[in-house]
Write a protein that binds this DNA or RNA. Structure first.
Lengths: 325, 325
DNA sequence: GCTTTACGAAGAAACGTATCGCCCCATACC
DNA sequence: GGTATGGGGCGATACGTTTCTTCGTAAAGC
């Protein structure tokens, strides 16, 4: 069931079959139709492997994330990442590509066994050896989150500083004087979020009040939330998705009412409909990263030399938890 | 940077390089080491495309789900499906495969452009044309959910009837007399769940009380939950993940206390820690489906003729919402 | 009548790997 | 001395496409 069988059955050469099926070459419509009809009748499907070998294009995009902890797929459990992957997959398919999610490293050499047209690296570490190796091989790389000094082809990222400022300004405007911050140490964007928070505090001349925890350690979130409330803030900002539940529980245990005694805002898509939340819009990030990557792949050569960059907007949904009655 | 360059640099033939790198043939360790050293120095990576063409194996597994609604990726938003995909991805990687998620149909011919060693089809419709086409091409197919009359190589599924009975028995034992059912019409496993519910009702000689809704229609869930409570049940079972929140909200609006006035149990992983929930263990389903599929791929020939089948256990977590005080 | 142009189609060379079978050269054995 | 034996290595082919180049023929232009 190769192209040869089709050629034989249609009484033409394989060149003609290839041209007819791919809309290339100079062929009268009669021939084209005839070949297509024969191919259909025989149930012919071109071999993806052979096409990939010949053209150098596989139609496959990789998506990975640098491992910060030793646990593979640590980010997977953050809804932020899951949503990014979902959106990236859908966008890739729209553009005619399939997307495969790979771990940064694995016992089997998966990276060597798939031909990738390009790769998205989410939250890369500086000079990630995996990224450098990909670039060396000529595989375009686009990063989600600022790539640091790694010379990628482009990246998408939120303006974390502005986003954090937006939330903190909102809390301050709602009457907060001492705003605390709770963050998962190994979560996405923690570094920038905390930095933005500290910068804002410095601007205002107020002391920062922060607590961090390991997301993967059971109970660590609750403990950190409790520690944070120990420091008597009148508002708290949870930088990660689990934070809202932990902070609410800790507040209840302490008989603090939200929002009366404590204002609350969190990042995330706001599973709890009463909590003010800042969405980082991971779906946009995923879609744009794919668009950027596909742009690089298909422009190859004509492309601009500068890495393309897009800033993903954030959206603050103000809910009861940060509205003084 | 092909195998030829390595051969030239090492002063041997490409056969020797291939054998040395793949641990085949009869070569003294000195040669093997030498070739490997040269290959490393040159940064040689075998071409996945060429290997795939030659060996007929790509190391890629597909995962798809039949489209029930017109919307692509309808199931994606069910946490059940998302978790299944996550687990399947991880398991595939453990076994040395990468997993690519594809829509049942798409404007671009993605299925034709990727070489798949096998495919998992979640909740296939009977005699799904896509599945039949894959089987015709000789691609092993394993299904998640009973495949009906489609001659797949194997499948994994929950025992839906037993699972539903387990929940209903629990509610009855907790004192429920009139148990209602709320289900998303287009959700996974709806048909079997509802059938199991009706069978249980018939066994007990009680009338079924069911309401369904379209998961994708905003407000439909709330409306259906309200309709269900209109029919005055003293316990309700939500067959899908969103049901808990909808039922709780509807109950609150009606000033019904849970569990005092209304017992509540749902399927899903129980985002709300106070709701009794039946987990279908999608992670197990995903992992097992991959294991089955890889088994079929690697056994090819020696395999048994009967399709392999595994029943995924369910787990009922009893919480406050179904515990009479 | 001879050259140009255009059209229709085919030949053949890659793409980079894996592998079957073969060859050569020692050493050992009768 | 002739022949098994086995280790070490290589030549050549096939996997199934895409595409560059070439070729023949017929119509059109001078």
């Amino acid at each position: 069931m190769g192209i040869r069988e089709v050629a034989a059955a249609a009484g033409v050469s394989i060149t003609t079959v290839s041209d007819a099926l791919n809309g290339k070459g100079r062929l009268p419509d009669t021939t084209r139709l005839h070949v297509r009809e024969v191919a259909d009748r025989l149930g012919y499907r071109p071999s993806a492997a052979a096409r990939t070998l010949r053209t150098g294009r596989s139609g496959l995009l990789g998506l990975t994330t640098a491992m910060r902890s030793t646990e593979p797929f640590a980010l997977t459990e953050f809804a932020w990442f899951a949503e990014l992957v979902r959106s990236a997959t859908a966008t890739a398919l729209d553009l005619g590509y399939a997307l495969v999610v790979l771990p940064a490293s694995s016992p089997h050499d998966v990276w060597g066994n798939v031909a990738l047209d390009g790769t998205i690296v989410v939250d890369p570490v500086d000079d990630d050896p995996l990224v450098l190796e990909l670039l060396r091989r000529g595989v375009p790389v686009v990063s989600g989150g600022h790539p640091g000094s790694t010379p990628v082809y482009g990246w998408v990222d939120n303006d974390h500083v502005a986003a954090v400022r937006c939330v903190l300004d909102h809390l301050a405007q709602a009457g907060a004087g001492r705003i605390g911050l709770l963050a998962a140490a190994d979560g996405p964007g923690t570094g920038k979020g905390v930095a933005g928070y500290r910068a804002w505090c410095a601007d205002r001349g107020v002391p920062p009040i922060t607590e961090e925890y390991e997301a993967r350690t059971p109970g660590a979130g609750r403990a950190a939330a409790t520690r944070l409330l120990d420091r008597a803030p009148d508002a708290v900002f949870g930088l990660h998705e689990g934070c809202a539940a932990e902070l609410l529980a800790a507040a209840r245990a302490r008989e603090l009412r939200v929002p009366d005694d404590l204002l609350l805002a969190c990042c995330g898509e706001g599973a709890d409909p009463s909590v003010t939340s800042l969405s980082l819009q991971p779906a946009l990030a995923g879609a744009w990263a794919v668009e950027l990557l596909v742009g690089v792949i298909e422009d190859a050569g004509a492309g601009s030399l500068l890495p393309a960059q897009r800033t993903v907007p954030t959206r603050l949904s103000v809910r009861d938890s940060s509205t003084r009655r």
